[in-house]
Design a protein around this nucleic acid. Structure first.
Lengths: 153, 153
DNA sequence: CATAGTATCTCGCTCGGCGAGATACTTGCT
DNA sequence: AGCAAGTATCTCGCCGAGCGAGATACTATG
């Protein structure tokens, strides 16, 4: 718990935050009649939409580590709930494009909105340079974790 | 992606890290023949052991948001794999105490070890005061998330 | 135009997790 | 003491997310 090495403490904190965020996500999921995976899928889809990356079932499945069968089931659920629409790609007619509904965007807002407010409020206690440091650090961590997952970086 | 408000960027990063860590955990789980929940359970149990909190199925289930049936099944799995032992509490003989096996500790090490090494390496680029800032910030975030989950803080 | 390659979907199955209720023990009331 | 109420854990039956294997529809290449 009270280790000397600062790196350990930070890892500990990140892990704790991850667990907390997971549980928050699970809670939110249940309240809205969906599963943790569905929430993660919505996050991915919203990110894709924001980055103007066009999303397909295959891409989504790859993001979430699902196989094709699971992905189809996932998209079925999301479509049934009206969060996503399927449209055939006219260029490559094997592909299906996933369009996120405004409803899903609103849902995302309702999930992250309060949390963002909280965290932004928490940032009030930090100077611009301090926040820049935090950002830089988180970026490093993100890369470290990504490298752990796929040791080809 | 390129928002102006630093708080938003940080939230974004934290979310991305959470997703990455989740996927890392899922990968690790599968490689070791267990489920994401099992990994989270082991984390909780190791934390408890480190903090000298004595763990029971009920406590564990509460940590993970499982009901009693699911918790029993979880502990069954962990026990079958030899990560955990059940012992009756002699004071209150309704209770079962969960003892983590050294094997599970080693497993935890093998999971977090490389990641910790990576992150600690990443901290090399930061001064002591900078790390302190990061730590303080993460602490705030952790509290913010916890408050989101249980608005009674 | 056949053959290989790719994107998605269907089918049958496994197993994690839930709700309801059983069981064993403790605690409080009288 | 003795009985009701409360609590910790487990059992049973079921639902449904995700997997493996294979079907289907389309594209690309010789």
């Amino acid at each position: 718990m009270v280790e000397g090495e600062p790196g350990l403490r930070v890892v500990h904190q990140l892990r704790a935050i991850t667990v907390e965020l997971d549980l928050l996500g699970a809670e939110f999921a249940q309240r809205n009649g969906l599963h943790p995976t569905d929430v993660r899928a919505l996050i991915c889809l919203l990110d894709a939409a924001r980055a103007d990356t066009l999303a397909t079932p295959g891409w989504l499945g790859r993001q979430l580590g699902l196989n094709s069968a699971g992905t189809t089931a996932l998209v079925d659920r999301l479509e049934r709930l009206g969060h996503v629409r399927r449209t055939r790609d006219s260029r490559d007619r094997r592909r299906v494009l996933l369009e996120v509904d405004d409803q899903a965007v609103a849902l995302g807002q309702s999930f992250f909105g309060p949390l963002i407010t909280e965290v932004v409020a928490a940032t009030r206690a930090f100077s611009g340079t301090e926040l820049a440091t935090v950002e830089r650090f988180l970026q490093n961590v993100r890369e470290a974790v990504a490298e752990q997952r796929d040791p080809s970086a």
